[in-house]
Computed example of a mutant assay.
Amino acid sequence: MRTALVVHASRHGSTRELAEAVGRALADAGLTVDVRDAADRRDLDSPDLVVVGGALYRGRWHARARRFLTRHRRELTERRVAVFGSGPRRDTPEAWGSSRAQLDRALARSSWLTPYAVTVFGGADPASGKQRRDVRDWEAVRAWAARLVTP
């Protein structure tokens, strides 16, 4: 049975919800999936696939996502890795482009990492906000995750 580890770094829970949706889609495709916070110190064990998701804040990828990459560098060089960022809370070309550029800059700092899939999903305002914007596209999340299973 193939296995996957999906880790997330989220401040308000939106990125965690995206990671859980990725995990469900991978499980629906037949993988055994573990979804956990990037701050979790457990070993990676030996998943066939590692998905790392982190929120994009003020021009940077979430610190726990960056630390996860650093902490597990050796193991990640030996596995298939996919990466996502959750970012724009406005559905405009400029917002999407800015979020993708932020994620690309963050990944460039880990030049040893060669993810085979990288994407940005829409983000959401904290649930406690008066006016909550949510541009997450759940069908796009499921479709991206399903593509991760194909060799």
Score class of each variant (00 low, 15 high):
residue 1 M to I: 11
residue 2 R to L: 13
residue 3 T to Q: 15
residue 6 V to N: 12
residue 7 V to H: 05
residue 7 V to R: 05
residue 8 H to M: 10
residue 9 A to R: 00
residue 10 S to I: 02
residue 12 H to F: 14
residue 12 H to P: 06
residue 13 G to L: 03
residue 18 L to H: 09
residue 19 A to L: 09
residue 20 E to R: 06
residue 22 V to T: 09
residue 23 G to S: 10
residue 23 G to R: 09
residue 23 G to Q: 09
residue 24 R to P: 08
residue 25 A to L: 05
residue 26 L to F: 13
residue 26 L to C: 13
residue 27 A to E: 15
residue 28 D to Y: 12
residue 29 A to P: 08
residue 31 L to T: 14
residue 33 V to Y: 08
residue 33 V to G: 08
residue 36 R to W: 11
residue 36 R to S: 14
residue 37 D to P: 04
residue 37 D to W: 10
residue 37 D to F: 09
residue 37 D to N: 14
residue 39 A to W: 10
residue 40 D to P: 00
residue 40 D to G: 07
residue 40 D to S: 11
residue 41 R to G: 10
residue 42 R to C: 10
residue 42 R to H: 12
residue 45 D to K: 10
residue 45 D to A: 15
residue 47 P to N: 10
residue 48 D to H: 14
residue 49 L to S: 06
residue 49 L to Q: 07
residue 50 V to H: 03
residue 50 V to N: 04
residue 50 V to E: 03
residue 51 V to S: 05
residue 53 G to P: 03
residue 54 G to R: 11
residue 55 A to M: 11
residue 58 R to A: 15
residue 58 R to K: 13
residue 59 G to R: 01
residue 60 R to V: 03
residue 60 R to Q: 12
residue 61 W to T: 02
residue 62 H to G: 00
residue 62 H to A: 02
residue 63 A to R: 02
residue 63 A to Q: 03
residue 63 A to I: 01
residue 64 R to H: 03
residue 65 A to E: 01
residue 65 A to K: 01
residue 66 R to I: 00
residue 66 R to K: 08
residue 67 R to N: 07
residue 67 R to I: 01
residue 68 F to W: 08
residue 68 F to H: 05
residue 70 T to S: 08
residue 71 R to E: 09
residue 71 R to F: 04
residue 72 H to S: 07
residue 74 R to H: 11
residue 82 A to K: 02
residue 82 A to P: 00
residue 82 A to N: 05
residue 84 F to Y: 12
residue 85 G to I: 05
residue 87 G to W: 01
residue 88 P to I: 01
residue 88 P to S: 08
residue 89 R to E: 08
residue 90 R to Q: 13
residue 90 R to G: 10
residue 90 R to A: 13
residue 90 R to V: 13
residue 91 D to S: 02
residue 93 P to H: 04
residue 94 E to Y: 12
residue 95 A to F: 05
residue 96 W to G: 07
residue 97 G to C: 06
residue 100 R to S: 06
residue 100 R to D: 05
residue 102 Q to M: 12
residue 104 D to P: 08
residue 104 D to M: 07
residue 105 R to A: 00
residue 105 R to E: 00
residue 106 A to Q: 00
residue 107 L to K: 14
residue 108 A to S: 06
residue 108 A to N: 04
residue 109 R to S: 01
residue 110 S to D: 11
residue 110 S to Q: 12
residue 111 S to K: 13
residue 111 S to V: 02
residue 112 W to M: 01
residue 113 L to M: 04
residue 113 L to S: 04
residue 114 T to D: 15
residue 115 P to M: 06
residue 115 P to V: 03
residue 115 P to D: 07
residue 116 Y to D: 15
residue 118 V to L: 03
residue 120 V to I: 03
residue 122 G to D: 05
residue 122 G to M: 07
residue 122 G to A: 08
residue 126 P to G: 14
residue 126 P to Y: 14
residue 126 P to V: 15
residue 127 A to C: 11
residue 127 A to N: 13
residue 128 S to M: 14
residue 130 K to T: 15
residue 130 K to M: 15
residue 134 D to P: 00
residue 135 V to E: 15
residue 136 R to M: 14
residue 138 W to F: 12
residue 141 V to I: 15
residue 145 A to V: 02
residue 145 A to T: 04
residue 145 A to P: 01
residue 146 A to V: 06
residue 148 L to F: 10
residue 150 T to K: 13
residue 151 P to R: 13
